[in-house]
Design a protein around this nucleic acid. Structure first.
Length: 563
DNA sequence: AGCGAACTA
C-alpha cells in the first residue's frame, strides 16, 4: 500500500504541470482570474485542483470546482483524483452531472459552472489590495511523446471502410497497443464495429486479438466504463469516441486528437484525409461554443446571477446581436423576462432553478395550474433525452408497428405517456423494451430524470397532480411552453405547414405518430433541418389556446391565424 | 410513402 502511494506520487511529479506548482499558486493568489493553457497530457485537469487543495483553497467550507465538457470525462477525472488522494469518490472528491449527484458534502450550485462562460473573482468595491483584475495567463507544455502523423494519399470515398481497413493494417503491422478511433455518430460507430466483427469471422489473421469497444452517450454506464479497464495481453482495444461535429473538424481539434496518441508513450496518428486538405482547406479553429449555441439558457443564468446588463457583459467570445435579440425575444414571450429585461417573479426565478430547456420549464410551471403536473413531468423527462426508441436499421417496418401500439391521436407527447405507462406496467422490464423497440437505457434514464424533476418541482412548490386522462389539460400545458412553435396546415396541401411566427414552410417528421395524419393545428418541440424543415415531437392543439396561454405573443398575429 | 449529429446544464 505504502509502495503504491509512493509510486503514485512519483507519477504525479513526472507530469509537466508539477514544475509550475509554485507559479500557479502564486498567480491564483494574486489574480482574480488565471488562465492556464495546458497541452494534452500536461496534467492540468487532475493536478491543479490538488495543488489548490494542498494550498488550503478548500478550507473553511470552500469548494474547488472543476468543469468538464463531457459526462464521461467528469467521472473519469474525479475517479482519478480521488484515487491519487486516497479517498473514496463521493466524500472529499465528488462530482455532479445533470440529474445525478455523486457528492456527500459538496454543496455547490453546479449551474454556476457551465463551460460556456467563466466567472471573475472581483475585488471588493473600492479596495486597494486583493487580487489584480487583469487575468494571468500561463502555458504548460504537454508530456511531449512524439506522434507520427500519417495521411491518405487520395481522399477516401467510404470513410467507415477506410477506418476498418486502417485498423486491420495497424493490427497486422504495429507492435502491441490500443487504437482510438473518432467517428461521427452512434450509427457509424455500430457499423464499424459490425464490420470488424465480420472481419474477425472471415479473415482471422488480420483481425485476431481485436477487441472493439463502442463509446457514445447512449450506452449504459458499465458499457462506457469498459474502455477504462486494462487491455488483456495480446489484445488490442478500439474505443470509438464520437466527434462533436459532423462538419469538417478544425486543425486545432485535429491536433488535440493526435495528442491523445502520445499521452503515455510515442504513438501514431492516421488521418483519413489528405495532407493537402489539412494544409489548405481545413479551418484553423472551430467556432467558439458561445457563438454556436442557443443563448437562451445562458441569458437566464446571467440574469439569475444578478447581471442585468448582458449587452455590456464581458463575454469571452461575444455572441452576435441577432442571436442575443432572438434569445431575449423568446424569454420575453415566455414571460421569463419582463419589459425591463429583468427576471420575472416567480416564473423567471423558478425557470432559472430548473436544469432544462426554458420552454420545458415553462410547460412544467403551467401544468401545475392546469392540474396535470404528474403527466407533464413524465413528458418533460422524455423530451430531455435523445429518443426512447432504439436506433434500428433494417427493421423499420417492425419498429413502426411497435410504435403504433402506443400511438395517440393527440400526438407524440401523449404517445410518450403511453410508453411510460407500459414500461411501468412491465415492471421496468428490459425484455419488454426489446420487444417494443424501445431503448431500455433511455427508459431507465426517463425514470431517473422524472424522479429528479419531481424533487425539483416540490422545491418550487409544485405538488404532483394527475389529470386522470384529461389530455386537453396536457396539450394545453405543452402549448403554454411551446406556443412559439405553433404551425398551421396549409389548406389543400400535401402536409405543408406554415409556422405562425414566421410563415416558414415546415413538415411533420416521419418519426412522429402524426406523420401523414396532418392535423390542422400543431405545436412542435424542435426542428430538424435536412432537405426540409422537419418538426420533431408534435402535438395537436386548438388554436384558441394560443391567445389564451400567450396573448402577448399572439394578439398582433390574429391575421396570420385567421382561416 | 419516408427521416437519421452529438454533447451539455
Amino acid at each position: 500500500m505504502a509502495y503504491g502511494y509512493a509510486n503514485m506520487e512519483k507519477q504525479r511529479q513526472r507530469l509537466p504541470v508539477y514544475k509550475y506548482r509554485t507559479e500557479i499558486l502564486y498567480l491564483v493568489e494574486n489574480h482574480a482570474t488565471t488562465i492556464i493553457v495546458g497541452e494534452t497530457g500536461s496534467g492540468k485537469t487532475t493536478q491543479i485542483p490538488q495543488f489548490l487543495k494542498e494550498a488550503g483553497w478548500a478550507e473553511g467550507g470552500r469548494v474547488i470546482a472543476c468543469t468538464q465538457p463531457r459526462r464521461l470525462a467528469v467521472q473519469a477525472v474525479s475517479a482519478r483524483v480521488a484515487e491519487e488522494m486516497g479517498v473514496n469518490l463521493g466524500d472529499e472528491v465528488g462530482y455532479t452531472i445533470r440529474f445525478e449527484d455523486h457528492t456527500t458534502s459538496m454543496k455547490l450550485t453546479s449551474d454556476l459552472f457551465q463551460p460556456t462562460f467563466y466567472w471573475k473573482r472581483q475585488a471588493p468595491e473600492g479596495s486597494t489590495h486583493g487580487p489584480k483584475l487583469e487575468p494571468a495567463i500561463l502555458s504548460v507544455e504537454g508530456r511531449g511523446f512524439s506522434v507520427k502523423i500519417h495521411y491518405v494519399e487520395e481522399p477516401v470515398s467510404d470513410y467507415i471502410r477506410s477506418v476498418v481497413s486502417t485498423i486491420l493494417l495497424i493490427n497486422e503491422r504495429e507492435p502491441p497497443g490500443d487504437v482510438l478511433v473518432f467517428l461521427t455518430g452512434q450509427d457509424d460507430i455500430e457499423t464499424a464495429i459490425k464490420l470488424l466483427a465480420e472481419e474477425a469471422h472471415s479473415n482471422q489473421k488480420n483481425s485476431s486479438g481485436l477487441l472493439p469497444l463502442p463509446l457514445y452517450s447512449g450506452l449504459s454506464r458499465s458499457e462506457q466504463e469498459l474502455i477504462f479497464t486494462p487491455t488483456p495481453r495480446g489484445k488490442r482495444k478500439i474505443s470509438d469516441i464520437e466527434s462533436l461535429v459532423v462538419a469538417p473538424i478544425s486543425k486545432a481539434s485535429a491536433r488535440q486528437r493526435s495528442g491523445r496518441a502520445g499521452r503515455v508513450r510515442p504513438g501514431k496518428c492516421y488521418r483519413l484525409y489528405t495532407e493537402d486538405y489539412f494544409l489548405k482547406q481545413m479551418p484553423g479553429e472551430g467556432i467558439p461554443e458561445m457563438q454556436r449555441s442557443n443563448l437562451v439558457s445562458t441569458v437566464i443564468q446571467l440574469k439569475a446571477l444578478g447581471i442585468d446588463n448582458i449587452l455590456g457583459f464581458d463575454w469571452p467570445a461575444p455572441p452576435s446581436p441577432q442571436a442575443m435579440i432572438r434569445a431575449l425575444e423568446v424569454l420575453y414571450s415566455l414571460q421569463i423576462l419582463d419589459d425591463d429585461a429583468k427576471l420575472t417573479s416567480p416564473t423567471g426565478f423558478q425557470v432559472a432553478e430548473l436544469p432544462l430547456d426554458p420552454m420545458i420549464s415553462k410547460m412544467i410551471l403551467a401544468s401545475s395550474e392546469l392540474g396535470c403536473s404528474d403527466e407533464i413531468i413524465t413528458i418533460a423527462a422524455v423530451l430531455s433525452i435523445q429518443s426512447v426508441w432504439v436506433i434500428a436499421r433494417g427493421v423499420q417496418k417492425e419498429q413502426d408497428e411497435a410504435k403504433l401500439r402506443f400511438a395517440a391521436a393527440e400526438g407524440d407527447h401523449v404517445t410518450f405517456l403511453n410508453v411510460y405507462k407500459g414500461f411501468l406496467e412491465s415492471k421496468k422490464s428490459s425484455q419488454w423494451c426489446y420487444k417494443n423497440f424501445l431503448n431500455y437505457q433511455s427508459m431507465k434514464k426517463v425514470v431517473e430524470i422524472r424522479d429528479q424533476l419531481k424533487r425539483i418541482a416540490r422545491r418550487l412548490g409544485i405538488t404532483l397532480k394527475s389529470c386522470d386522462g384529461d389530455m386537453e389539460a396536457v396539450r394545453k400545458a405543452v402549448t403554454a411552453g411551446f406556443f412559439a412553435n405553433a404551425c398551421r396546415l396549409e389548406p389543400h396541401s400535401n402536409g405543408v405547414y406554415k409556422t405562425i411566427r414566421g410563415s416558414e414552410e415546415v413538415y411533420i417528421h416521419p418519426s412522429s405518430v402524426l406523420f401523414r395524419v396532418n392535423p390542422k393545428w400543431v405545436v412542435y418541440q424542435s426542428i430538424v433541418s435536412t432537405e426540409r424543415q422537419y418538426m420533431r415531437n408534435v402535438v395537436t392543439i386548438n388554436p384558441s389556446w394560443l391567445t389564451e396561454v400567450a396573448p402577448h405573443f399572439y394578439q398582433n398575429r390574429q391575421n396570420a391565424m385567421d382561416l
